[in-house]
Design a binder for these strands. Structure first.
Lengths: 149, 149
DNA sequence: GCATAAATTTAAGCCCGCTTAACTAAAAAG
DNA sequence: CTTTTTAGTTAAGCGGGCTTAAATTTATGC
């Protein structure tokens, strides 16, 4: 029983540290790009999912189609995304990152990795191995969880 | 060399999964409270640091004193924080969570933990041990990194 | 074909966060 | 003391996201 408590505590402590730190730096990075958080979130979504339609966006972020359309328009204006007609359904539009958009995302993601790299650079080889193994297990577990949902 | 590459990949994959998932659910939770993200962030800051002055807030979030003051005012109105005169310096104000504010934060943090608990509930006892150990090591490394900065 | 439904856009209007500038009050410096 | 600095508030105004409502264009059902 005390073991599982200790386990929980380790989890919670790490999450607190990690979330606080990473959300803060994410906030500042996005701000530094001149884009707003909702705009940047759309870029991130495109980064993960590739191209998608307007309705996908509005659904994923739980905003109206109108809102999604307006955000997309700004990103098109800024040259971060392209908006094309869906060849299968001419009512629909497909949006995707431009190379400018991809570069920006890459910068953000790399900055996200940097702190982690700094953190792990202090670890012993053995610890690194353990950490890597743990993350692998957790990533798999997350994929399984996703499947069911 | 390939080992360190694999290590990096494990880190990156986990970060991608974890960040995407946790930022999304955080966003929705905050929205569900009826507070805005900046408002909620102040509550979180108070949760971590205890009471602090207006200038601490404006510094930490890199906003003007005016902005911090306005946000705080809304949180006072909503009953989430208290604002008192600093007895040592009557120009300054100290703000801190009320019990209503604390309850809200607790809900948010618990929701944050829940996914992690779901995730780890699928792990074997051995894996759990390894994960806990990894997080402990990382949390320590983070503390050391913080010290130096 | 024709009516209806679906995908998106545009416009009007609201709320919010943020900034600057002006103001109040208290502390510190001289 | 008087001056200057510091902490915070208030008000005006801008820009952004979001919603609803109306309009447009294309697909679908019958």
């Amino acid at each position: 029983m005390t073991e599982s408590l200790q386990f929980s505590n380790s989890l919670r402590q790490w999450m607190d540290v990690f979330m606080h730190r990473s959300m803060r730096s994410w906030h500042f990075f996005v701000k530094s790009t001149g884009l707003t958080m909702p705009q940047f979130s759309i870029l991130m979504q495109l980064h993960y999912k590739g191209s998608c339609g307007m309705s996908d966006i509005s659904e994923h972020f739980d905003i109206s189609n109108a809102a999604a359309s307006q955000l997309a328009e700004k990103l098109v204006q800024g040259g971060y995304i392209e908006r094309d007609e869906d060849p299968n359904d001419r009512r629909a539009k497909q949006i995707q990152l431009t190379s400018k958009g991809r570069k920006l995302i890459e910068m953000g993601v790399n900055e996200r990795y940097r702190w982690m790299d700094d953190l792990t650079s202090k670890l012993s080889a053995e610890e690194k191995l353990q950490v890597a193994e743990s993350f692998k297990v957790l990533t798999e577990a997350a994929a399984q969880l996703e499947e069911k949902a």
